[in-house]
Every structure is written in structure tokens, then in C-alpha cells.
Amino acid sequence: MPDQLWVADLTYIPLGSRFFFSTLIFDAWSLKVVGYAIANTTETRLTLIAQDSGYQMRNPGPR
């Protein structure tokens, strides 16, 4: 059933001599990306921003 379990993936993207980091939030049931965030650091807030993005795009109900 959709929106019962979300999982996160954090990866880095090399661009020239710099790195960027991407957090993707997936719905475990459908494997669709439900939220994302990209930044140049791996701070905890990157994942929280991606999670909030998922809540705004999917509106799954109360947290």
C-alpha cells in the first residue's frame, strides 16, 4: 500500500573538482521518488528537506 513506508538514499555526484549530494526519498511500495533535495554538504537537514518535499508532493496525512 502506498505511503506506508518511505526509504531514503543519499549519494554524491562528482562535478569537476566539486561534489554535490542528493537525497532521494522513495515510497517502498511503488519505488517512486516522493521527495528529493540537493546540496553541497551532507548535513542532516538535507534529508529532512527531502522528507518535507515528499510530504508536500504526496500529502500522505498526519505524521
Rank of each mutant, 00 (worst) to 15 (best):
M1L: 09
M1V: 10
M1E: 12
P2W: 09
P2V: 12
D3T: 12
Q4Y: 11
V7P: 00
V7E: 06
A8W: 05
A8P: 06
D9C: 03
D9L: 02
L10K: 02
T11P: 02
I13M: 13
I13P: 03
P14V: 07
L15V: 15
L15S: 13
R18S: 08
R18Y: 06
F19V: 07
F20Y: 15
F20L: 13
F21W: 09
F21M: 08
S22V: 15
S22M: 15
T23V: 15
L24D: 08
D27V: 03
D27M: 04
A28V: 09
W29V: 03
W29K: 08
S30V: 01
L31V: 11
L31G: 10
L31P: 04
L31Q: 13
K32M: 07
V33C: 15
V33H: 10
V34S: 00
V34F: 00
V34H: 00
A37I: 02
A39R: 14
A39I: 03
N40T: 14
N40G: 10
T42K: 15
E43P: 02
E43G: 10
T44N: 11
T44D: 11
R45K: 15
L46W: 00
T47I: 10
T47K: 01
T47E: 03
T47L: 03
L48G: 11
L48I: 15
I49E: 03
I49V: 07
A50F: 01
A50H: 00
D52N: 11
D52C: 04
S53M: 09
S53K: 05
Y55A: 04
Y55V: 02
Q56E: 10
M57I: 05
R58W: 03
R58K: 05
N59D: 06
N59E: 13
P60T: 00
G61V: 07
P62Y: 11
R63Y: 10
